[in-house]
């Protein structure tokens, strides 16, 4: 372990973890309301990032773009579009699958993921888009003095700090929405028991649609945050896959757990890079999955999940 790098990596990991946690929230939301585990969420994240990039006039010659919006407007437009996409997915892909076994529903989301991968490639092209409009230039760095760290200071890119702030604010807003509004109450009731929810006048199919719509919004926001840090490419779907270990660590049923799991995964990914061994440094892409295996073996229900009791 290279201890002088640890403070820097600790803070970087924590900041990255915010975005991971936000992405994880979208998956947990759908799981909580409809017991569907959405393997296509990573592709929704990627698609949202591409959509935002397209709304800012990306890819076209300057002045010839069909739509050329400033970043904030492009983000709003992409959020609206992805809400629609979420609703469409629920209506045409998941609703016909109601009552099917777990494997079939899981494969449905995997099929969706493939479809999105192909659609993104055909609509936006396969190469990396590095012209995603960044609100800050890479040289905008916040320097916090920290004796003992590498260079006696922690350097934070403004971009990273901004993504962290946006992610945590969005996640807190969403958790507040889920816990304290009437719509959130309806969603929680549906998560508890579909029939009971129906009997008190909640439209369960509308709640499913709403949760997919919100999940689409969260995915796109996560995609925008990932894109400001690393650019827009088809790889974003794989990057977003590390939300899975975060969810399992936090527990499938817990929104706060997903956020905390995101922080933990961000930390793990960053801290292995502080190692002196090159093999350990290289392992940052699989470290979350090793952690996932450990969680599955020791505590499959995660930190805050519900333990299942099975009856025949």
């Amino acid at each position: 372990m290279n201890w002088s790098l640890v403070p820097q990596q600790f803070v970087t990991g924590l900041l990255n973890g915010g975005t991971i946690g936000l992405i994880a929230l979208g998956i947990v939301l759908i799981y909580k309301s409809s017991e569907v585990f959405n393997f296509a969420h990573g592709h929704l994240v990627m698609f949202g990032a591409f959509l935002t990039w397209w709304f800012t006039g990306g890819g076209a010659e300057p002045g010839t773009a069909l739509i050329d919006l400033p970043l904030w407007a492009a983000v709003i437009a992409a959020l609206m579009a992805s809400m629609g996409i979420g609703l469409l997915i629920e209506r045409f892909a998941l609703r016909p699958m109601t009552g099917q076994p777990l494997l079939a529903i899981m494969l449905m989301t995997l099929g969706l993921a493939q479809l999105f991968e192909g659609m993104t490639a055909i609509l936006f092209g396969v190469e990396l888009k590095s012209d995603f409009p960044a609100p800050f230039s890479p040289s905008d760095v916040l320097v916090i003095p920290f004796p003992g760290a590498f260079g006696d200071a922690i350097r934070l890119k403004y971009t990273l700090v901004a993504t962290f702030v946006v992610a945590t604010v969005a996640a807190s807003l969403f958790i507040w929405f889920f816990n304290s509004t009437k719509t959130g109450l309806a969603m929680r009731a549906t998560a508890e028991d579909h029939e009971v929810a129906r009997s008190v006048g909640i439209k369960v199919s509308r709640v499913f649609g709403l949760s997919w719509g919100i999940a689409g919004v969260i995915a796109t926001l996560g995609g925008v945050l990932l894109a400001t840090v690393s650019g827009v490419s088809l790889n974003l779907s794989t990057v977003a896959l590390i939300a899975f270990p975060a969810i399992l660590l936090g527990g499938l049923e817990s929104l706060g757990g997903a956020l905390l799991g995101g922080f933990a995964i961000g930390l793990v990914q960053a801290l292995v890079q502080a190692s002196r061994l090159i093999e350990v440094r290289n392992s940052s892409e699989i470290a979350p999955y090793l952690l996932l295996l450990v969680v599955l073996l020791i505590r499959p229900e995660g930190l805050f999940g519900q333990k299942r009791i099975e009856r025949i």
């Binding site: 099929g111 493939q114 479809l115 999105f116 991968e117 192909g118 659609m119 490639a121 396969v126």
Partner: peptide
Amino acid sequence: SFRPIFFG
């Protein structure tokens, strides 16, 4: 891109 679209 047609392979993933058709397969999905």
